[in-house]
Amino acid sequence: MEEWTVEVEHCKSPKEKPKTEELEFGRIFTDHMLVIDYTEPVGWHDARIIPYQPLTIDPSAMVFHYGQSVFEGLKAYYTPDGDIQLFRPEKNLERMNRSNDRLCIPQIDESHVLKAIKQLVHMEKDWVPTAEGTSLYIRPFIISTEPFIGVAPAHHYKLIVILSPVGAYYKEGINPVKIAVENTFVRAVKGGTGEAKTGGNYASSLKAQELCAKQGFTQVLWLDGVEKKYIEEVGSMNVFFKIDGEIVTPSLNGSILEGVTRNSVIQLLKHWQLPVTEKRISMEELYQAHMDGTLEEAFGTGTAAVISPIGQLSWEGKDLHINNGKTGKVAKALYETLTGIQYGKEKDPFNWIEKVTETETIPVK
């Protein structure tokens, strides 16, 4: 693919920036968005930054009928030095291409898309909130736009990136949350789309999430879709347990989404020389560890929440209260280190940070 240029159309009526106390997750959006088209046989073309606006799409566009779509989520952070930086954005775009492959969507040029995202973030730099714990959420997504009612991969797509200044994902913050273990519904199975970041996975999780929310739980912990026995992931997070000194997370099995934060946590734990294992673990094993007194910590990991300690798991009428409902030492250390790196307050020994600078942006037409 040839090097892109990016057309820029500036917004004529900029919106008022929200106050910190007004920030919710995913409710407010910036003045501009990035759009790139795909048409066969041309490929990806016409990259442009335009004012944030509604889309005009044919009612027969295939995304509405057959769900051919993928998305990603990452953040831009404001540092004490006044820089804006991204955390491992190349991993998100690598995962987007894996999702693309599973959904029969054409591959993107990851380096070009990253440059275009950086240009968009740089344009919207005044939207990056500066208060502690806030950030600019970046949502790239691809939808099939071909007007055709037929079950086949589309020939036309749009890649769109929108930005949203956000506060904390969970109102609980770093405080432990209550999680319900799901025994009735199934999110994904090996061979399905569980390891792709596609909207259908989340649509299938809504019913269980709705029911558990009515009972006062923050999220659902999904078990495997075949035996409903082995732990997989929480609705918006991967999950870790500290059992008798060892930190365990379910191994990737074809139905679990490989989280960027999950990968980062594993690297950090190994860097700290703490025992961390990826393996299959059943809910029965976890319950037995709780009864034995060896279940020391549980926490979720994800871009939105970073680290979310789990203070209670409810499974088949039994409540597992973990670490007396308090945040564990490992979860706290991971949260402080990861956010420290993300916000430029700690050293980055892994070269995870990408600075957003004007000199790195793509030439404008």
Rank of each mutant, 00 (worst) to 15 (best):
L269P: 03
A208R: 06
K91L: 08
G194S: 01
V265D: 02
P147F: 08
T134Q: 10
I138A: 15
S308W: 00
E358N: 14
Q53C: 14
E278G: 01
L338K: 00
P59F: 13
I138S: 11
E227V: 11
N238C: 07
A304E: 01
D83Y: 11
S251W: 10
R280Q: 13
H112K: 15
C212Q: 07
G225C: 07
L295I: 02
T134S: 05
Q119S: 11
M33W: 08
N323P: 00
S205M: 08
G133V: 03
P250D: 08
K178V: 00
L55R: 12
I307D: 05
F29H: 01
D109E: 07
M1A: 13
Q288G: 05
T294E: 02
G254N: 09
T30M: 12
W4S: 06
G259T: 10
A304V: 13
L103F: 11
G311K: 05
T193R: 10
K347T: 13
R88G: 06
A168M: 03
T184R: 13
K355E: 12
E336W: 07
G302P: 05
V265C: 02
I28A: 00
V265E: 02
N183S: 15
I143N: 08
L211K: 14
V248D: 04
R280T: 13
Y78I: 09
E232L: 06
A116P: 06
L320M: 11
Y343R: 14
L221R: 01
W352T: 12
G192W: 08
Y78Q: 13
S314H: 07
H271I: 01
G73Y: 00
H45I: 09
L257Y: 03
Y343E: 07
T249R: 02
V6H: 13
G311R: 04
Q312H: 07
I149D: 10
Q273P: 07
I162Q: 07
G259V: 12
H122Y: 15
L257W: 04
D244I: 00
G191E: 06
D81C: 12
L23H: 08
P363Q: 13
D224A: 05
E358K: 15
Q342G: 06
I28G: 04
K242I: 06
I49C: 14
L252C: 09
L163A: 12
I28Q: 12
N201Q: 11
N324V: 04
L338I: 07
P51Q: 15
K91V: 09
H290M: 05
L252I: 15
G245F: 04
